[in-house]
Amino acid sequence: MSRSSGRSSPLTPYLQVAPLALIMLAMVGIPLITVLLLSFWQTDGITIYSEFTWDNYAQVLTSPVTLTLFLNTLKYAALTLIATMLIGFTCSYFLVFHVRNLKWQIGLFLLCTIPFWTSNVIRMVSWIPFLGREGVFNQALISAGVIDQPLDILLYSDFAVVLTYIHLFTLFMIVPIFNSMAKINPNLIEAARDAGASGWQILWTVIVPLSRTGIALGSIFVVTLVMGDFFVVRVMSGGQSASVVSAMKNQIDQLFYPEAAAMAVLLIVVVLLMVSAILRIVDIRSELAK
């Protein structure tokens, strides 16, 4: 390295962040601003007029459907979050504390990623022949004599939606939890044991608190993914349930763009509130800096 590169001009850091900043501005900033503008414009169902109005928000906020949609979506998010957290924590715990061998750890970790070799859609759709009325699972239960009639709640139900979410998003929980668990110094666990702590006490007083950065990061991933989904809801509920985004999709299909935009802004606000609540519980930035 030449000496001159050490003597950088005050502009250097700005130039260094410029490429990413430009991409973010073009790909995130401009569309967001467009949505925001659109949400304040008027429409008669056919044409959109660039004139300011609160009508779209009034429509969205006064409609009882909005609350139902949000509650339904939040229910999916909460159920998925709880399940992925439990599975993600357990898998990570197993990988970090039981599979001590690094080669096995990497091997099993890659195994977790195998579902990602195909697209989301195929992974989702492949549940249908399994869960259907004449599906593999129902037939197995019937032939085992557990039930006489096929179970209807398995497919095209909230159960199917949440199950698919869990299947699709658990890895997003495993990776960050694994990452923060792997950083736990094994001596800390020995120190806890030396102080007389039982296995459960070690789990609750040492491992869970020290994995919280990973849990928080994973929660942000899962919550934002579920809140932003419409396809899984549409397919796996068989059109019987709706989420915020699937309702938005309907509005767009009917060319109610400004109303959909207002709904989108509301959703962004809600998701931002949820993420900042998570960040308030766990200070991810200071934990990651360690």
Binding site: N185, N187, L188, E190, A191, A192, D194, A195, V206, P209, L210, K290
Partner: peptide
């Protein structure tokens, strides 16, 4: 009846 003091102290960071 023993207590071990670890080489790197192993204090709980949280």
């Amino acid at each position: 009846g023993t207590a071990l003091m670890f080489q790197n102290y192993a204090l709980f960071p949280h």
